[in-house]
Design a protein around this nucleic acid. Structure first.
Lengths: 105, 105
DNA sequence: TTCCTATCTTCAAATAGTTTAAGATTTAAA
DNA sequence: TTTAAATCTTAAACTATTTGAAGATAGGAA
């Protein structure tokens, strides 16, 4: 009865972890292997793999195997748009705090 | 060291619940009292209030008191944009599933 | 082939965090 | 004081995250 809200909530839950945000941002500049991601993130390989499999299960990323490597890519570029809007919201909050500071003498 | 990613993850965590999504969508058309929201959502008033206080703590909504009522409103309209992009992502996924169905005879 | 190494994934246990309901409490109006 | 609205507290059930060990698979060397 509220399938779309459920979908949105699931999507945001999938985005609700800093490691997953960082992975998506890294993938924003093109596909990467698990070890490239692992090196950039500086966390256990198994954690990277588990976060990737979670995002694959929720259709956020696609996986492509090549030899012993697995390349991951962002599935829908709109995901990157969502991250960009989140950044704007952050900037609004910072601006608002600054104007509060300015109005206190 | 990754403050922006942390901020984004916290924002998406706050969005990662169907009741909170529905509340924000209801507030999209203007401020509402807790009881108006409670009536529309058909859940316990205390649950509505808990979800609202979570969103207030994370600066997603503002509260304004008037008599015995508290009116809630979306704080940054960009939040509604994020919800709209999530809807587009949903539509993309539906379209993709349909095209898979069409290509199987 | 057989063995070795690199890459990635899966599993299980420990820890941490979230959701929900019920009931108590606060607040302000009548 | 009584009532209505909203919030807070608590506890149980549930869900997510991390770690380290073990497992799977591909490719190359002996």
């Amino acid at each position: 009865m509220a399938a779309l809200q459920e979908f949105k909530a699931e999507l945001f839950k999938a985005l609700g972890h800093p490691v997953r945000i960082r992975i998506l941002e890294l993938l924003g500049s093109g596909e990467k292997t698990v070890s490239e991601l692992q090196e950039a993130l500086e966390i256990e390989a198994s954690s990277v793999s588990q976060q990737l499999s979670l995002m694959r299960a929720r259709q956020l990323v696609d996986a492509r195997k090549n030899g012993t490597n697995v390349f991951y890519a962002v599935r829908d570029p709109l995901l990157l748009d969502i991250l960009a809007v989140a950044r704007q919201i952050f900037e609004h909050q910072v601006a608002q705090m600054n104007s509060l500071l300015d109005s206190d003498s």
